Simulated scan of single mutants.
Amino acid sequence: MESSPVLTTVSPATLGTKPHYAILDGLRGVAALMVVAFHLCESHATSHLDQVINHGYLAVDFFFLLSGFVIGYAYDDRWSRLTLKEFFRIRLVRLQPLVVLGMVIGAVCFYFQASPVWPGIAAVPVWKTLLVMLVGFTLLPLPVSMDIRGWHEMHPLNGPGWSLFYEYIANLLYALGVRKFSNPALGILVALAAAALIHLAVTSPAGDVIGGWSLEPEQLRIGFSRMLFPFFAGLLLSRVAPLARFRSAFLLCSLLLVLILAMPRIGGAERLWLNGLYDSLSIVVLFPLIVWLGASGQIAGEKPARLCKFLGDISYPIYMTHFPLVYIYTGWVGTHKPTLAQAVPVALLTFTAAVLLAYASLKLYDEPVRRWLKKKFLAQR
């Protein structure tokens, strides 16, 4: 099981008079939609080798890179007038409302997910589900002993919460110290993190970087390895990469991103390390290239601009609300055992429902709640 992605966004108000990277918003949305498709196809896979949209799990690493880039761009030059308390307030107001909603949706859907995939769900008492939901509101990771689903998730009601846990850690590391690093010092940190990530990918028993969602030593190693390089590489990229001007950058970057995430397994069961090399190449080289191209790109026309805005707007809501629907779909597949071809109508229905749920969550909940929180806690800024 791979839950993703982490989606950091910064509002135009946060950026002040700085230009807004609309293409990066659009790419975040493209990757989020690929994640939904990846998770639906995952329900039919028998192993990592035959997974359709095989490398969709790399969206997590792409989002960490985007997050580091946008955080650096938005905040690096503001610390002379920004306190740590204010920074954390801004981040909580941006991220936390949908964390809460995702856990509520996960709890509501929990008992509709019963199937042979999770034979013990029906026996879970309501009080325990509510307790898991309340802990989920805080994003504090649950131990395996509190896993009510059986997938060893630190947030079993809404699995993608694991990447938000690491997102908050990345924000803490940035605000408490890494923001003060010189570019050479940050470069050394990024190089060491890249070496750790490549070692993880190439030596992994499965030949990939999948993992990070469980409160277990090896899973924690995977989670930190997947967060440290891309987040701080994105931060470094925001500082040192001179931007150019590219036409059709959104189309080019979207196609490249889709190809990377949809690439079939490399090397097969005999040479797993080759897939680890592919993961490493994607995260260390190709994703920074895509972000640089996207940041350098120009949007010509109202329709592409609206598309990028729509994709950016729904990307984080999709992240925080789609997985309870995927749980239900996985339970349906486990009960009825359709082939992927037979399941296409239900998969398309679930995919459409995920997009509609994300848009409704954005307009009816997230935006109104964030407006209220900004007036209450950020108005003085």
Rank of each mutant, 00 (worst) to 15 (best):
P5T: 07
V6F: 14
L7G: 00
T8M: 10
T17M: 13
Y21V: 00
V35K: 11
V36E: 04
V36C: 08
V36W: 10
A37K: 05
E42A: 07
A45C: 08
Y57P: 00
D61Y: 01
F62M: 03
G68S: 01
I71M: 08
Y73L: 04
R78D: 08
W79P: 00
K85P: 00
E86P: 01
E86N: 14
F88I: 06
V93M: 06
R94T: 02
R94F: 08
L101E: 05
A107T: 00
F110C: 06
F110K: 03
Y111N: 02
A114R: 14
A114H: 13
I121N: 01
V124T: 12
K128C: 04
T129G: 06
T129K: 15
L131D: 04
M133T: 03
M133I: 04
P141T: 12
L142M: 10
L142K: 10
H155E: 11
L157T: 12
G161T: 02
L164D: 08
L164Q: 14
E167Y: 02
I169N: 00
L176W: 10
K180D: 09
F181Q: 01
F181V: 00
N183E: 12
P184K: 14
A185S: 12
A193N: 10
L197G: 01
A201P: 07
V202T: 15
V202I: 15
G207Y: 14
S214V: 02
E216A: 12
E216M: 07
R221S: 12
R221D: 08
G223M: 13
L228A: 15
F229H: 10
P230C: 07
F231N: 02
L235K: 04
L236Q: 12
S238V: 09
P242H: 13
S248L: 15
C253Q: 01
L257H: 08
V258Q: 05
L274P: 07
N275R: 13
D279M: 10
L281R: 06
V284E: 06
L286E: 02
V291R: 08
L293R: 03
S296D: 09
G297P: 01
I299E: 14
I299H: 15
E302C: 03
A305G: 14
Y316T: 00
I318Y: 08
M320Y: 04
T321F: 10
T321L: 09
H322Q: 06
F323V: 13
F323G: 03
L325I: 06
T335G: 06
L340I: 08
Q342D: 04
A343I: 02
A343W: 07
V344S: 06
P345F: 12
A347S: 12
A353E: 04
V355Y: 14
L356Y: 09
A360Y: 15
K363T: 04
R370P: 00
K374Q: 13
